[in-house]
Design a protein around this nucleic acid. Structure first.
Lengths: 127, 127
DNA sequence: AACTTTCTACGAACACCTTCGTAGATATCC
DNA sequence: GGATATCTACGAAGGTGTTCGTAGAAAGTT
């Protein structure tokens, strides 16, 4: 699970379903997608075919209704997306991005504490 | 500086120049853009025209060579991009995003300290 | 067996982004 | 003044992403 392109918007929607619900047929995946925006069955089929070629999903053709599963894990994709944003808009400064994230939306005390723990761990290990 | 679409990749390149160097003509902006990828003069002109329509930049037509300036500020755009990433890939969890950002790329001690200060300030004010 | 449903494959349409060539206006230079 | 340079406007092309209709194969129904 390493070399793969960054998924597009529609592709990410599908991956999210696979990450949450595990492998499934086109019909199952289509059913789990949000109703908004409405998307036809064949739209999802087509997307999955494309994603297969890109290596974002793999499929098992044993059954008539092929079963698709994610070929990339969520963290890897999220990491890529963060890195992309970092280079495109934050001059590769992690702290700038973190600041922006923390200030742009209310963060609960629990979340703050969680982040603090991570910072402690990072400083501890790099010491 | 509020309602505006998220800039595309090429548009963000141009905005970055405007944010860093201030207003300028097409020629000046074109000169400040990175050489890679190479982009023709009229490409930038066209982009600026489109960005004008979208409200991302404003232009002064006093001189023959129109002068463009950013109509959106960097923080606002960055905030939007972060929010977009947050909703698309992080289930609106700021802490998840922050974790991902902190672990996906080495963060210097100075940056960590800076983030810590921000956390202190946030907790202090929300207390 | 005929009909209906469910599936894949494929092509085409549409929208958006990016690129640049060309045309025509305006300024500058010799 | 005529050639050259610089500017804007515009159209069109090429790429990518997304959508869905249609066709044809396979399974299920009566």
């Amino acid at each position: 699970m390493k070399e793969h392109p960054t998924p597009t918007d529609a592709e990410l929607d599908i991956l999210s379903v696979l990450w949450e619900h595990g492998p499934g047929t086109v019909r199952q995946i289509h059913a789990h997608l949000p109703d908004d925006p409405p998307r036809g069955y064949t739209t999802i089929l087509k997307l999955l075919q494309i994603m297969s070629e890109k290596g974002l999903v793999r499929r098992n053709e044993r059954e008539r209704a092929h079963v698709y599963r994610a070929a990339v894990d969520a963290d890897s994709v999220r990491g890529r997306m963060v890195k992309h944003l970092l280079t495109r808009a934050f001059d590769n400064s992690t702290s700038k991005l973190v600041m922006q994230a923390l200030t742009s939306r209310r963060t609960s005390r629990a979340e703050i504490a969680e982040i603090r723990r991570l910072l402690d761990k990072m400083e501890g290990s790099s010491r």
